[in-house]
C-alpha cells in the first residue's frame, strides 16, 4: 500500500492562505460593455438632445409637454397603443390553442409543431415581414388567388394599412407568446385534471375552473412581453403600414433620418422608454426573468 506522506508533495497544505475569490467579479466585463455601449450612449443622447430644448429644467419640461400634447404625437401614441393591444389579443387567440395542442402532443406531431414555431422565431424580422409583403401585396398571393377565382375584379388593398401592420406584427411576435404559454401549460400536473374529472367535473368545467386559471400567469407574462415589444416596434409597421399608421418608433426614426430633429426624437424616445420600463417593472414583479424568451 502507498504511503500517505507521498501525497503531500503535490500540495503544501497551509502554504496558500489567501481567501477564495467569489466568482461574482466575472460579471464585470459584461457590465462594462453594457455601461459603455448601452447605458452611457443613451444617457448622453438624452442629456445632449434635451439640453437643446431649453436652458432650465422648467423650460425643458415645457418643451416635453408641448411635444407630447401636439396632435401628431398624441395620435401616434394612441395609434401605437391601439395597434399593440390588438396585436397582443390576436396573438393570444392564435397562440393559446397552438400551445395547448403542443402541450398535449408528443413524438412527431410535437416536433413538427415546434419546427413551425421555432423556424419563424429565429428567422430575421425583415425576412418575415418581406414574406407577408409577398403574400399581401398588390400583386401578391392573396390577390392573385382571389382574382383568379373571380371573387374580385381589381386587387384589394391588403397592405399599407392598419390591418397589414397587425397581420405582420402578430406574425413576428406570435412565437414569444406560444413559447411562454407552452412552458406554463407543460408545467401543469396532469393529475390535477384527472382529479377534477374523478370528482365529477365535465371537460369544459375542468378547463374553466382548473386548467385556465393555472395558465393565467403564463397568459399574463406572455401578453406583457408581446405588448412591450409591440410598442417599440419599428421594422414591420414601417414596411407594411400606410401613412396613417404612424407608430412612435417610426416617428423617432423619421425625425432622425429626415429632419435631423434630435430634440424631438429624444423626447419621444424618452416617452417610449418610460412606458417600456414601467411595463418591464410590472413584468419583473410578476414573472421569472429567466423564462423571458420562452
Amino acid at each position: 500500500m502507498v504511503d500517505a506522506a507521498v501525497m503531500s508533495r503535490g500540495r503544501k497544505v497551509g502554504a496558500k492562505r489567501r481567501k477564495a475569490v467569489d466568482p461574482g467579479f466575472l460579471l464585470l466585463p459584461l457590465l462594462v460593455l453594457l455601461l459603455l455601449v448601452f447605458v452611457a450612449p443613451t444617457l448622453w443622447f438624452f442629456f445632449n438632445s434635451l439640453r437643446e430644448t431649453g436652458q432650465s429644467l422648467p423650460e425643458v419640461m415645457r418643451a416635453i409637454q408641448s411635444v407630447l400634447f401636439s396632435s401628431t404625437i398624441r395620435d401616434a401614441i394612441i395609434k401605437t397603443n391601439w395597434i399593440s393591444l390588438v396585436v397582443t389579443l390576436v396573438a393570444l387567440v392564435i397562440a393559446y390553442p397552438i400551445a395547448y395542442a403542443m402541450s398535449r402532443s408528443r413524438g412527431l406531431a410535437l416536433t413538427l409543431m415546434v419546427i413551425c414555431i421555432v423556424l419563424p422565431y429565429f428567422t430575421s424580422i425583415i425576412v418575415r415581414t418581406y414574406s407577408w409583403m409577398v403574400i399581401l401585396g398588390r400583386n401578391g398571393l392573396v390577390n392573385e388567388v382571389l382574382l383568379q377565382l373571380g371573387l374580385i375584379s381589381s386587387p384589394l388593398q391588403l397592405m399599407y394599412n392598419t390591418s397589414g401592420v397587425v397581420i405582420g406584427m402578430t406574425y413576428v411576435l406570435l412565437p414569444y407568446l406560444v413559447l411562454t404559454l407552452y412552458a406554463s401549460m407543460k408545467s401543469i400536473d396532469d393529475r390535477l385534471l384527472h382529479a377534477a374529472r374523478s370528482l365529477g367535473a365535465s371537460g369544459f368545467y375542468t378547463f374553466r375552473r382548473i386548467y385556465l386559471p393555472l395558465t393565467l400567469h403564463g397568459v399574463f407574462s406572455g401578453c406583457l412581453i408581446v405588448f412591450i415589444l409591440s410598442i417599440g416596434f419599428f421594422i414591420t409597421p414601417a414596411l407594411m403600414g400606410g401613412p396613417q399608421d404612424m407608430m412612435i418608433a417610426m416617428l423617432i426614426e423619421r425625425e432622425v433620418e429626415l429632419t435631423l430633429n434630435w430634440p424631438l426624437a429624444s423626447i419621444m424616445s424618452l416617452f417610449l422608454l418610460a412606458i417600456t420600463l414601467v411595463l418591464y417593472a410590472v413584468y419583473y414583479r410578476f414573472s421569472n426573468l429567466q423564462k423571458m424568451m420562452g
Partner: peptide, 8 residues
Amino acid sequence: PHIITAIA
C-alpha cells in the same frame, strides 16, 4: 426598443 438603442 431597438430603435432607441440604435439612435443613441
